[in-house]
Design a protein around this nucleic acid. Sequence first.
DNA 1: TTGTATGCGTTATCAG
DNA 2: CTGATAACGCATACAA
Lengths: 351, 351
Amino acid sequence: MKSTTLMEVAQRAGVSTATVARVLKSNGYVSNETKDRVEAAIKATGYRPNAVARGLRQQRSFTIGHMLTAITVNPFFVNVAHWAEEEALEHGYKTFLFNHNGEADRERRGIERFIERRVDAVLFTNAIAGENIALLTEAGIPALQLERIRAVGVPSIRVDNRVGALQAMRHLVELGHRRIAFVGGDHKLIHRGESPYPSVEQERLGAYHEGLAAAGIAADPDYQRLGLYYSIAEGGSGIEGYRHTMALLDLPNRPTAIFATCDILAAGALQAIYERGLRVPNDISVVGFDDTLAVNLTPQLTTVAQPMEELGRAGFRTALAAIEGGTCPEVAPLPSRLVLRRSTAIATHTN
Amino acid sequence: MKSTTLMEVAQRAGVSTATVARVLKSNGYVSNETKDRVEAAIKATGYRPNAVARGLRQQRSFTIGHMLTAITVNPFFVNVAHWAEEEALEHGYKTFLFNHNGEADRERRGIERFIERRVDAVLFTNAIAGENIALLTEAGIPALQLERIRAVGVPSIRVDNRVGALQAMRHLVELGHRRIAFVGGDHKLIHRGESPYPSVEQERLGAYHEGLAAAGIAADPDYQRLGLYYSIAEGGSGIEGYRHTMALLDLPNRPTAIFATCDILAAGALQAIYERGLRVPNDISVVGFDDTLAVNLTPQLTTVAQPMEELGRAGFRTALAAIEGGTCPEVAPLPSRLVLRRSTAIATHTN
DNA sequence: TTGTATGCGTTATCAG
DNA sequence: CTGATAACGCATACAA
């Protein structure tokens, strides 16, 4: 059953395709009488515009590509993708997703697909390699990096990790904690490419030290555990956080609070603590980062929320501005913020 | 920077567009000499086929639509979507996603978008309304229901919920549990439309009773809690499971095991149990369903895994068969299976 | 083995 | 106010 075309509608209404197009876009002059006839014909035939033909004609597909790290591994990515899609929808756009799984080669292939599909712009959450982004630039397709900067000169929307992390530290300090551990990403392992800004990892670790210093607490290297957030190959479980936490609990003077800078890491931490027969938050407090798994963990996790909705929405809007305006507007970093739940409490055993 | 066209490649190679097309699709006869010239021209110009133009010409967009309930709420949906996308990729296809959030009206609008984009087929995980699917059929676009059947006469790939659920029940019984509670979806609240098959909820509840009967255990209505899995409006937290579990724990003779037929429900159950100061699995065992949140919960959850990868992959393959063969092949129900982790143990306090 | 020509469904320009 | 007509980039039937 072939779908109706403009031509068929025109014939049925006894007008030309140009006239049908005019009533469809409600621009240009059309007499009310013919307009009614055309609208009747449209209804009668169940005509639906062909976006493919329009894309070819207008040299614009009303489609963007969204390159993601691994949508099934960290819920952060689904959320950003979802809200970008939602914003796109409201502007007549659809998005294509692609997961590079941390492999530069896959990222390149994904970008090639995007180019073939003639997407009007590409969002990266997160990019891997600058030379891949360059493929887009060569093709005249605007690119925008969300959250993490992997290539200089490519526009981006960053997150202010510092505000939220500082709130978390202040919160713990106010609860009387002084032995606060940090479980987070290792800048050297995670950061790629170059950037004029500090990496996400540097920001979070920096805020940890800043918070410590503000409270007059000396940093204890034993309390600082750096590594990967999760292994994509291992399916994204919290095993990394589990291992770090076990090591922390084995310390002669174990921490009374743990700041894990990813909910997945925090999930592993909670498992380790539980296994040791300790209770959160009575024996030890835990703060996460992202606000993804948080509500589903036991106990519900106090965590630093990332602005995932705004990241996605602003991401699309900015890309659209680049498509239409030719230039990509600057966007101020989006703030993170602490969300209080049930995994933090007044410090006990503080010596 | 406009992208190169076949025409430009042809001119550069001193041949016609037809010849370039021939070497591109490596069909038809092309002399080695011209083939080399054309390939050189392709490389030199950085030519990339225009999928939009091809789509118009071939009356095939190499794109499918995937209608989802709510991708950010239940990780089940991301996983199915991801694997369908992955399989699609391997066949030169891309997918468009759309979340209807449980609203029939949104589903209709999403389908209209799919039709305008001229997708070659649509996957539903899960459909809401049969009359919406009919829009596709009228447009000559194959539709396929995954996991849940909401419309008769529309092809589907189902999951055998019974096998896995029976394994779970047998597992609990073997551990000595006799007071086993069921926390799950209410067929009357969740099932929509009509189907020749029992609903997912009926299958799971049926297996519960079957497992009970096989062990010679009388079903206790107090142990059976039915409702929604989660509220999309409430952001998909495990609050439903939390409430049911609290009620179960208040019972004079509380259960020693809970079979929650969704990991989100189980997450809420774990929170309730924790809040009451009981330990899983020592004081009470918990089994979930889906294998989504399971690895990240505390303790890691024993759960009935759904075949999400196969559902997605088989979903796309079957849709492709429908696109190319005109008819949609039957697919046998995909099995679910129990995955053992750390939330189940030998029953204590069994009177 | 290669080239020519036509049309896929729109939109946009131009003339009437 | 309306209608012809020409692309958009590609694939294919048909000629040569």
